[in-house]
Write a protein that binds this DNA or RNA. Sequence first.
DNA 1: TAGACGTGGGA
DNA 2: TTCCCAAGTCT
Length: 360
Amino acid sequence: MIPDDLEVIDFNRRLKSWYLENHRPLPWRETKDPYKIWLSEVILQQTRVAQGMPYYERFVEQYPTVFDLAAADERDVLRLWQGLGYYSRARNMHFTARQVANDHNGRFPETSEKLLKLKGLGQYTAAAIASFAFDEPVPAIDGNVYRVMARIFGIESDMLSNEGKKEFAAVARQLVSKDDPATYNQAMIEFGALQCVPASPNCMACIFKDSCFAYEHQMQGQLPVKIKKLTIKHRFLNYIIIRQGDRLVMHERRGRDIWKGLYDFLLIESKAPATNPDSLTILDPNFQNFLKKGRLTEVPKVYSHILTHQRLQVRFWWLEIPETERIDLPHGMAFYNHEEVEELPKPILIDTVLREENYL
DNA sequence: TAGACGTGGGA
DNA sequence: TTCCCAAGTCT
């Protein structure tokens, strides 16, 4: 199971030659700039290359250096991030940019140990940056690498458990090339992404088919072992889009719920689908007040939005307030004109609805 | 430390 | 439709 030194040398030689012939030319691989490498790594956390690529291009364009990102408003950073998901990545990235700019003269720490102290950088990302930008011989273990190691070396422990992670890390430390850790880590990741894919890998075309544990035992479908218990919560969200002229009432989401830092509308959450708005007045006294001042129209379509741990069923109502009415908004809520609404960071669901309703 | 955190794509 | 997955991290 644990490879000996000779096996490690052979493995590295084969892997590197595969990488040199087969890797994709990705922009963040053309640079040693730790800032750009960091941007790409954060963007790619739990994200496919195809999905992250346009965001990477836009961030580099908009914020060419860590100082540019540090100088930006968090709101604008979130807006540029809109649609990528896991928005804490954007908030942490912005925080870290300011820290690097202000406390480190714009220079990123050069070891994985120090990088690990920065917000938004865990074991994987710290190792990735340390090896890619500074050639530190540390293994960067992401989902691809877990899969490659589990299959080739037959590691059957749960990659999501702490003991499992330790076992993988121990093997990974043996494997990582001391001469060229940057290429080694890129190669492991790329090999997992292109050849040793999660579903139906083409093992006939694999350079390791003569020595792969999973192939030998036909366990490609069982490895790696991931034991996850995921409970899906169903929620019913009812949004009142208060509108006066071209202005909408929006507010920034705070607290521990989803979409923190993003903007949405007056939200009334119910325990069951709310078919008539009257039932919502009981749940929200503010709504009752607004209702008297305007005209309510329902958006007929019911939206379903799926998150990792939640399944959202969402309804929208427009509440049109005549220009002559003056209304008091609850704390944190404000009117935003058309241009401002466009510029605000919003959950993709909100953006979609505003487009489908021909507001944006 | 187990659970939470987005979105889109493919089988 | 439903499920799983995708360059993980935070609390």
